[in-house]
């Protein structure tokens, strides 16, 4: 390697569910380089055993999120120049999720909570019925549209201090999904959604700190969705006692 190539000091967390530590690598800096490029370079050139997860590389699949210098980020769309601290980079597995190995986390708790939050479609029609026409300008549809670009990357879940302190908490992404379905005219079980988010791990545990909205790579606002759920559940409680 030429002496003129600038080398970055990259600390990568290595280990598994039982524990681990940071391992340092020297990685050549390039003009246009993402964090995922850096991690891939290490895996391809220095340690083939390095484990990490990615798929689309263009910010659509939500697979490659990691902690970069202590902040949850989508690594395929994060340029090194934006986050380089002097000459150092620190890359770790996502916070608030169990580690499988190195930079790959077990996403099961995250997706299990989508199901717990009734983040599934409850059909109102059969295949024999006519397709329901949706008014794109209706206030409910406009509200639902604010959350549909979620790519399930779990960055908001990793950023959330309430998740860190309360393992039962459903988390911002799952609750935002519930709010989207609650506002969807095609969903037939709105009370079921409110019941699902009103339990001991539900939306009422959110402290509105807003880390989810700050770190969401798609500029979504799960905190606002959770506030909507709090309003809807409070109205339901006053009207129906639940």
């Amino acid at each position: 390697m030429s002496d003129s190539v600038k080398l970055m000091d990259v600390a990568i967390w290595r280990g598994d569910a039982t524990g681990g530590a940071y391992e340092h690598f020297e990685v050549p800096a390039q003009e246009s380089q993402t964090i995922l490029d850096v991690v891939s370079w290490i895996q391809q050139n220095q340690d083939a055993n390095l484990t990490y997860r990615y798929a689309c590389r263009v910010g659509m699949c939500g697979s490659c999120a990691m902690m970069v210098n202590g902040t949850p980020r989508w690594t395929c769309r994060t340029h090194v120049k934006k986050v380089l601290d002097g000459n150092k980079l620190t890359v770790a597995p996502l916070r608030n999720l169990p580690v499988i190995k190195d930079l790959a986390t077990d996403m099961d708790p995250f997706f299990d909570k989508w199901v717990e939050a009734e983040g599934v479609h409850h059909p109102s029609k059969t295949r024999d019925d006519a397709i329901e026409l949706i008014d794109p300008k209706s206030s409910a549809r406009v509200e639902a549209n604010t959350g549909i670009e979620c790519i399930n990357c779990s960055i908001c879940y990793a950023a959330c201090d309430t998740v860190a302190g309360n393992t039962d908490y459903l988390g911002p992404a799952a609750l935002q999904r519930s709010w989207t379905l609650y506002n969807d005219a095609r969903d037939a079980d709105k009370q079921g959604i409110l019941d699902a988010v009103s339990g001991t791990g539900g939306c009422h545990n959110c402290h509105s700190q807003g880390s989810c909205a700050v770190h969401c790579p798609n500029d979504l606002n799960p905190m606002k969705a959770i506030a909507g759920l709090k309003r809807a559940t409070a109205m339901s409680f006053l009207k129906n006692g639940r």
Binding site: N166, S198, G201, G202, H204, T233
Partner: peptide, 9 residues
């Protein structure tokens, strides 16, 4: 930990 009942209270 904090359900709708405790939240409303």
């Amino acid at each position: 930990m904090l359900d709708i009942r405790l939240y409303m209270l």
